[in-house]
């Protein structure tokens, strides 16, 4: 089972942004329950684009679908902002109200588990 250790970055994407007022839709899951890594990391993970991977941090874990983005250096994985990214984001606000949403130490690994839908994800909280 392949795994990589990366800094996790979350942020806006066009697909996530255009479905954010429609978060109970399948389109939102397709847009936000994803993890982008570069081709080399995809090889290390031993998975193909569209397979599921598990993202684990000190704060939690989330299963998302892997996509290729060669703009990411080897040290970075990107998950669009949303409940899947937030399942692995710490809540400490550094005394200023802002959690660290970008630059979280994470382990990404291949998995047989499936991606949770929005309702299941909320139910798991």
């Amino acid at each position: 089972m392949g795994k990589i250790n990366v800094k996790l970055i979350s942020g806006r994407t066009l697909d996530q942004g255009s479905t954010l007022e429609n978060k109970m839709s399948k389109e939102f899951v397709d847009a936000a329950a994803i993890c982008e890594v570069n081709q080399k990391n995809l090889g290390t993970l031993g998975v193909s684009e569209g397979d599921n991977v598990e993202v684990k941090t000190d704060f939690g874990e989330a299963v998302v679908c892997v996509r290729v983005n060669n703009g990411n250096p080897d040290s970075i994985a990107f998950v669009p902002m949303g409940p899947w990214a937030n399942a692995v984001t710490g809540s400490d606000s550094g005394g200023v109200g802002m959690p660290i949403y970008k630059g979280i130490d994470s382990e990404v690994s291949s998995t047989d588990k499936s991606v949770l839908g929005v309702k299941e994800l909320m139910g798991a909280i």
């Binding site: 007022e21 978060k23 704060f59 937030n86 984001t89 909320m122």
Partner: peptide, 29 residues
């Protein structure tokens, strides 16, 4: 519910939540 870390969302289970919004979203849960 979508945009806060999971650890912050947890307390939403235990208190009354009032939502004013045009759309159903994870906070509606």
């Amino acid at each position: 519910a979508s945009n806060f870390p999971k650890g912050s969302v947890e307390h939403m289970k235990d208190i009354p939540v009032i939502q004013v919004d045009p759309y159903h979203n994870p906070t509606t849960e």
